[in-house]
Design a protein around this nucleic acid. Sequence first.
DNA 1: CCTACATCCTCTAGCGACTAGAGGTGCAAG
DNA 2: CTTGCACCTCTAGTCGCTAGAGGATGTAGG
Lengths: 140, 140
Amino acid sequence: MKKITIGEAARQSGVKVPTVRYYESIGLLAAPSRSEGNQRSFEPADISRLAFIRHARELGFEIDAIRTLLTLQDDPHQSCASADAIAKARLVEVEQRIRSLMALKAELEIMVEGCGHGRVDQCRVIEVLADHGQCMHPHH
Amino acid sequence: MKKITIGEAARQSGVKVPTVRYYESIGLLAAPSRSEGNQRSFEPADISRLAFIRHARELGFEIDAIRTLLTLQDDPHQSCASADAIAKARLVEVEQRIRSLMALKAELEIMVEGCGHGRVDQCRVIEVLADHGQCMHPHH
DNA sequence: CCTACATCCTCTAGCGACTAGAGGTGCAAG
DNA sequence: CTTGCACCTCTAGTCGCTAGAGGATGTAGG
């Protein structure tokens, strides 16, 4: 059993060193054993767990949701209904966010296209910001 | 000249009362004059400014970008090149974010569709999270 | 004029999810 | 043995607000 340092764990999982310590501090990752000199010594399982967390974070899951997903992973005999519900909720969020960003994109495009590159008093960017009534889409 | 209270300013601009005070504290809004009893008394121009800020925030501009946009608005004889650049940068960001969210949506859909609603050890949600190699899209 | 009540004031602390930095210790190579 | 990197703990900062305490002011009704 070779010891995995925090740096090594970070490299292999793609989670930064301070973030690994942070995850430990909030109880997302069990505190690993320590070397003689008080340095953390991780197991391969910890690296998988970190990679799991990282992937879930990249998908935009909140720490609390990840906490739930991890307890599910820890006990594979449970029903996966909660995992399913969490993922579905996230999907709805993402779809909502995409729709809102599309509307936003449209508005930004109007602003940018309308800019005559002259002085501010003819600039559509400033004008549209100042007067919401000029928006095409009632997205907000 | 009737006095506009902070509550009235908030109502008219759509910015919440504590947020108005916050904007004043960070210098985004000039400190208004005060009544005898030390209460803020806003001008109509302040309300336009607040509405401008609100709209820009809704479009996802950061406070620092808004600060720049506001100085441009304050001096309409400047070139609008910076406003244009800020809006364009924001547009690029938004487009990038949309692309990444679309990839993410696809991945979440695979997870959710693959869930057989059985036990966790057969659940695609947990499985995909644990193994990034199963992602279809190399978006992250 | 008095009372009730909404609204205002300042100040501090908290949110999420880290990130940065200070000040110190451990460890492997040259 | 010394250099230099990686590690340790701890605190404080980031962003853009938001919540709450504890008190002052303004207004409408009786």
